[in-house]
Structure formats: structure tokens, C-alpha cells
């Protein structure tokens, strides 16, 4: 009997340690997975914020010839404003264009000095509701007679239009790639976490197989037997998710100000709402991973 006492003591200590290490392992994997998921979401968010700020700057400029009839210009402006793709139309006179140019060229006054008269045309700056419709809008404008009448280069109306279709296309291609990589990452890490939880719960079931056998014997209901394991999986994921959120908040607080300093012309900032949403997504994802992982393990290893 003395040998038995020692044996049982050792076994329970070993079992405790084994479970502890496994649980910690599961928590760490979920933590790392959700951290990467969170960081890729933050990156995606920042990139799309940058894209949006660039998109805001995408507009169509229609250059007008000197001495274009005011009523024609106003008619064109009115026609543009009636188009459902157009958000706003802004008239920029020759003088305003020159002022803008001077402002931009303030660093090299010799260029401004060398200008004897104002070479810049007046223009209509068209902002669109959706930057992706730039090409379509350009086609509509080119088909419009008024435009040909007032444009800067009637011989080649195309040259009187300036728009950033290529920039927009490239940016959209880039964001698509970022999103795709993000989705692939999330899927891969999600399945890794699932496998880990699955394993942890399998070991937990194995470690408690005697108790489970007796529970079944005396008629404990299936849900009663399953609940602690489901809970274990969910708790592990929630702890992992919690630490991941804290890490992301810390990283964001440490890195973003420096990033903003290095890139003053881009808006690198995460609103508190976005941060809350991110936390909710991570907690939700953690909960889901925990439920699914332990659920699979229970289905496979706990025949009740």
C-alpha cells in the first residue's frame, strides 16, 4: 500500500503537470495565431486607410480653354453635377491655378520668376462618389459636346482631362493582395489553433478517462460530461485572445506614433472604435476556435 500511495501521488502530480503544460501550449498557440491575425488586420486597416486617403485625392480635372464662354462652362458644370457618379464640381480659375502652382513651387522661386504671363488653364475639378468609376466618368465626359466646346485642346480632347486611373488601379490591386494574404494567413493560423485545441482536449479527455467512464456508468448526461471540456477549450482560447489584444494595444501604442512621425503625409492612426471592433473580432474568433476545436475532439474521442 505504501508503494501505491507514492505511485498515485506521483501519477497525479505528473498528470497535473502534463495538463498544465498542454494548456499553456494551447494558450500560447492561440495567442500567437490571434496575434498574427490581429496584426494582419491592423495592417490591412492601416493600408486601406491610406488607400482611402489617396482615393479622396483622386479626381478628374477638366482643363478649360482661355476665354471659354462662361455660360458654356456653367452648363457643363451643371451637367456634371446632375450625374449620379459625381460628388462635387469645383471651378478653379486661372488665377487660383497659378496661386496653387506658386504654393507648390515655393521652394524654387526662379521658376515662378521666369514666368511672364499665366500659362495655366482654368479647370473644373470633379470629385466622384466612388473613385473606381473614374474611367466610366471620363468616357461620359468625352462623349459630352459641351466638353469639346470648352476644353483646352479641342483638337485632342483626351489631353484636356487629367485623372488618376492608374494610381487607383494599382492601389486596388495592392489592397486586394493584402486582403488575400490576410485571409490565407487567418485561415492557416485558424486551422493550426484548431488542431492544437483538439489535441489539448484529447489529452485532457485521456487524462480523465477513468472519471468519464464512471460518469457514463452512473448516468451523467452527455452534456454534463462534455461541458467541462468545451469550457476548457473556450477558456484557453479566450485567455489567448485576451493576451493577443493586450499585445496589439501595446504594439500599437509603441509603434504608431513613430510611424506617424516617419510618414507625416499619411494618416496612420487607429480609431478607438476600430480597436474595439478588432478586440471583439479576436474574442469572437477565439471563442469559435475553442468551441470548434474542443467540439471536434469531443466528437472524435468522447463516445458517450
Amino acid at each position: 500500500m505504501a508503494i501505491n500511495v507514492g505511485y498515485f501521488l506521483k501519477e497525479s502530480v505528473t498528470s497535473f503537470r502534463r495538463n498544465w503544460v498542454m494548456s499553456l501550449g494551447a494558450v500560447i498557440t492561440i495567442y500567437l495565431s490571434l496575434l498574427l491575425v490581429g496584426l494582419s488586420m491592423v495592417t490591412g486597416y492601416l493600408v486601406s486607410e491610406v488607400v482611402r486617403s489617396v482615393e479622396d485625392k483622386v479626381s478628374i480635372q477638366i482643363f478649360l480653354k482661355d476665354g471659354a464662354a462662361t455660360e458654356d462652362v456653367e452648363a457643363l458644370q451643371g451637367w456634371l453635377l446632375r450625374d449620379e457618379l459625381v460628388e462635387a464640381v469645383n471651378y478653379v480659375s486661372k488665377e487660383q491655378a497659378l496661386d496653387r502652382f506658386k504654393e507648390e513651387m515655393a521652394g524654387s522661386p526662379e521658376i515662378i520668376d521666369s514666368m511672364r504671363e499665366n500659362p495655366l488653364p482654368a479647370s473644373l475639378d470633379v470629385t466622384l462618389n466612388d473613385p473606381r468609376t473614374v474611367q466610366e466618368m471620363v468616357e461620359r465626359i468625352k462623349a459630352q459636346e459641351l466638353f469639346v466646346q470648352v476644353c483646352d485642346r479641342p483638337d485632342d480632347p483626351e489631353q484636356s482631362l487629367k485623372y488618376g486611373q492608374q494610381i487607383v488601379d494599382r492601389l486596388f490591386a495592392f489592397t486586394r493582395i493584402v486582403r488575400l494574404v490576410g485571409v490565407v494567413f487567418v485561415a492557416m493560423l485558424g486551422s493550426v489553433s484548431l488542431i492544437f485545441i483538439n489535441n489539448t482536449i484529447r489529452l485532457a479527455i485521456y487524462a480523465r478517462r477513468k472519471e468519464i467512464g464512471i460518469m457514463r456508468l452512473v448516468g451523467a448526461s452527455n452534456s454534463f460530461i462534455r461541458a467541462p471540456f468545451l469550457l476548457e477549450g473556450v477558456l484557453q482560447s479566450l485567455i489567448g485572445a485576451g493576451i493577443a489584444i493586450l499585445t496589439i494595444v501595446a504594439v500599437q501604442a509603441a509603434v504608431l506614433p513613430r510611424l506617424q512621425e516617419a510618414l507625416p503625409f499619411l494618416p496612420v492612426d487607429i480609431s478607438p472604435t476600430a480597436m474595439l471592433q478588432l478586440s471583439a473580432v479576436l474574442l469572437g474568433a477565439g471563442m469559435l476556435i475553442g468551441l470548434l476545436g474542443s467540439g471536434f475532439a469531443l466528437r472524435r474521442y468522447l463516445k458517450v
Binding site: 498515485f8 501519477e11 497525479s12 477513468k210 472519471e211 467512464g213 464512471i214 457514463r216 456508468l217 452512473v218 448516468g219 451523467a220 448526461s221 452527455n222 458517450v304
Partner: peptide, 24 residues
């Protein structure tokens, strides 16, 4: 039905050769 099996087992006490007690 499977889910009703536990309730059947509550009507049946079982004793085995190896006792099946929890050592802890």
C-alpha cells in the same frame, strides 16, 4: 435514443470486478 441512455443508466447500479474507484 442515444441521449436518453444516461437516464436509463440511472436506473441501473453497476458493480465490477475491478471496483472502478477514483484513486484521488
Amino acid at each position: 435514443k442515444n441521449w436518453k441512455v444516461p437516464y436509463l443508466r440511472r436506473n441501473i447500479g453497476c458493480v465490477f470486478q475491478d471496483f472502478k474507484l477514483l484513486p484521488n
